[in-house]
């Protein structure tokens, strides 16, 4: 129920936006994430963007995994 999917914002019109993933686009509301602009990735739940995804944070998660992997390989 609380599933949210990452989509990329390709157009912003006021509180609404068009976001897409792999060519499928969808109209969403960005009223809960007004800072969002074209090119941003957002987590979308029930038609609303609930969080702009910070790429740096996402990369850190990947780095953590890699570090863990390296630490374990030694």
């Amino acid at each position: 129920m609380c599933v949210a999917v990452p989509l990329k914002v390709i157009k912003v019109t006021g509180n609404m936006a068009i976001a897409e993933l792999e060519g499928i686009s969808k109209e969403i509301s960005i009223a809960l994430t007004p800072e969002v602009s074209v090119g941003d990735w957002v987590l979308v739940h029930a038609g609303y963007a609930i969080q702009r995804i910070d790429n740096e944070e996402a990369r850190e998660t990947v780095r953590f995994l890699e570090e863990l992997y390296e630490a374990n390989s030694k």
Partner: peptide, 12 residues
């Protein structure tokens, strides 16, 4: 229905 994830979308 839903937890805190859904409530703001319903409030909107």
């Amino acid at each position: 229905a839903g937890f805190e994830t859904t409530a703001p979308t319903v409030a909107m």
